[in-house]
Design a protein around this nucleic acid. Structure first.
Lengths: 341, 341
DNA sequence: TGAATCCTCGCAAACGTGTGCATACAGAAT
DNA sequence: ATTCTGTATGCACACGTTTGCGAGGATTCA
């Protein structure tokens, strides 16, 4: 029986007019007399009419949807970004498709391709890992794209993007430690976020050099593992850094820092009394661990809303300059002045 | 210039056949000779053809999309559920729309309505707060719906659902505390998750009664606040419970428990030496706080994948019994035997 | 050779909507 | 009475697919 939902045709029949008239009446077109307009609009609600966005999309060649591909939902960092995207999108009556790619370039591309089949008006890619070849094919789709904290170099040329200033963030972290009196500072990073890791590590080295501090290869640890969770990486690698004699550790992100913290707690190494730790991202958990984590704050939700705003500009044929957002230092309890012995 | 992407019409022209033939060839229909089939398929990839899912949806009266409305992305609990949903959906080539409702029934309904306009094949609602009237209107849409950890009573009648066994979870928590020797146990809850809070509180009372333990009104604290974050609620209310003389607190969820933990730490009250705390949910942060939180584990991702599976059954006209998943106790370091003084 | 059968393929309708253009009718102006 | 200017509405096409049905040609069979 009547599974089919009511269409403007049905309303047209009921009102004794053509479907064009109904379409115009529902859009409040001045071409239709006020009486007929009111009558049809009333009829529409009475009959429980819901416009078919699929048919509209086909006709208008515009779906009012965007696709958002993210490495992992579940990751507290990205879920905040998603929130920012969704909020702006919703306020503009555009719906968002969500897909996750697990840092796998293939899955990432497959997701984007799927979005393209659905004729999304634009796509947002978080933490993009795509290859040059994939980027090429995506460009050929001619679908407006904006990258959030992209992980591959040389992408800014062909695509729009918003990203945090990794170098500045790392600088804030390391300078903070130096000002506290630390002279032997280690870095704990990951290789599967190539670009940002390189930038943070680079800034770490730069600042140390600027301050004329000692640098040793064994103070820089970058996990090559692709599968381990960040916390586990931090937990496993922190001891090696401590053995190398550092008094402070700058971690690639908060989860690694938390892992390091756990390792210290387990070994009875006092944080911040014996070693200072600073993270990056300022995820919610950073406030709840003991000691609360000193970290570099990324405005995650703004990252998302900015990206969506840029996409909206693109869709409206407005110019949309790339944006880099500024991170800030958040001092909590995992860092402390280093007293020379 | 050629912004329009290539259609089967274009391929048809290039191949000198009708668009029907192209359509059939691309679907590997045996109605088309093998030669023509191969030729057209080759042509399709050469010309960079991407099927238009919008047009297909309109024709097939099926979009292969589902809508997922959740209270808050960002919430570590729900983001795990989203992950479960997305994973199953993706493996079945169906895309998911994501929207958040912030525990507001109106926004919740608006999101579902938006999904319906887009003619999603089904919707998933997490932590549903909808009113009876809204439920009525949703039912009238005739769109398959499955609820995840629904928060309003009497919904199971008209809708499918998957939920954790709140009563069992609470029982596990309270019995655990009792077995440790605690005799004065408090409950810390929230009113804006009506159903699950009621059930957990109810089970708490039941278990205490079964064990013949003392119950005092001031040992039950349920925050009526609608805006505060859970952690803040825990932080603010825990002291009142301590003042009331409890030696253990069962919290509605982990974030509240973490808040309580923070309050204790701030006041120099030892956990678990002076007071035991147990949470609910087993969010990632529960492992990282000190002391690591004893809690009730909810299989969050499974909650999502189960819900999506049920929805798939519904879409295939298969019978789909509601499922209630079983929570388990995870013992960590925030609980300890109570030694009578 | 004629008819029956099979294999390929095109025609046209349908899904639900938006919109340019023609048309019908009203009243006003000539 | 005729022409003109609006105003209100319908016709028809378009968007890109899928699919029932019919038609044409080749093949087979009697």
């Amino acid at each position: 029986m009547g599974r089919r939902s009511v269409s403007i045709q049905d309303i047209a029949r009921a009102a004794g007019v053509s479907h064009s008239t109904v379409s115009r009446a529902l859009h409040n077109s001045s071409l239709i007399s006020m009486d007929v307009r009111k009558h049809i609009q009333q009829l529409a609600v009475d009959m429980g009419y819901t416009p078919n966005a699929i048919a509209q999309s086909l006709q208008m060649r515009r779906t009012n949807t965007v696709g958002l591909v993210v490495t992992s939902i579940g990751d507290p960092f990205w879920s905040d970004v998603v929130r920012g995207v969704e909020e702006i999108a919703r306020s503009h009556h555009i719906s968002v498709f969500l897909s996750s790619a697990h840092t796998d370039p293939e899955q990432e591309f497959a997701a984007i391709e799927q979005f393209h089949r659905r004729r999304v008006d634009g796509v947002l890619v978080a933490d993009a890992h795509m290859s040059k070849a994939h980027a090429e094919r995506i460009m050929r789709m001619r679908v407006p794209t904006v990258l959030i904290n992209c992980q591959v170099d040389g992408m800014v040329d062909w695509s729009h993007s918003v990203a945090v200033d990794d170098a500045l963030g790392a600088r804030l972290a390391v300078e903070h430690l130096i000002q506290l009196g630390h002279r032997t500072i280690g870095y704990l990073g990951v290789a599967n976020r190539p670009l940002s890791n390189t930038r943070r590590l680079g800034a770490y080295r730069t600042v140390l050099r600027e301050c004329g501090l000692n640098q040793l290869p064994e103070w820089e640890l970058v996990s090559q593992d692709q599968l381990l969770e960040d916390a586990t990486i931090g937990e496993m690698l922190a001891p090696r850094l401590l053995d190398a004699g550092v008094t402070a550790i700058f971690c690639y992100n908060d989860m690694i820092a938390i892992g390091a913290l756990l390792a210290c707690n387990a070994r009875g190494i006092g944080v911040p009394s014996q070693v200072s730790i600073v993270g990056f991202d300022d995820i919610p958990a950073a406030r709840f661990v003991t000691p609360a984590l000193t970290t570099i704050h990324q405005p995650k939700q703004r990252l998302g809303s900015q990206a969506m705003s840029i996409l909206l500009d693109l869709l409206a044929d407005r110019v949309a300059p790339n944006v880099v957002v500024t991170p800030t230092l958040v001092e909590r309890n995992s860092t402390r002045p280093w007293l020379k012995e």
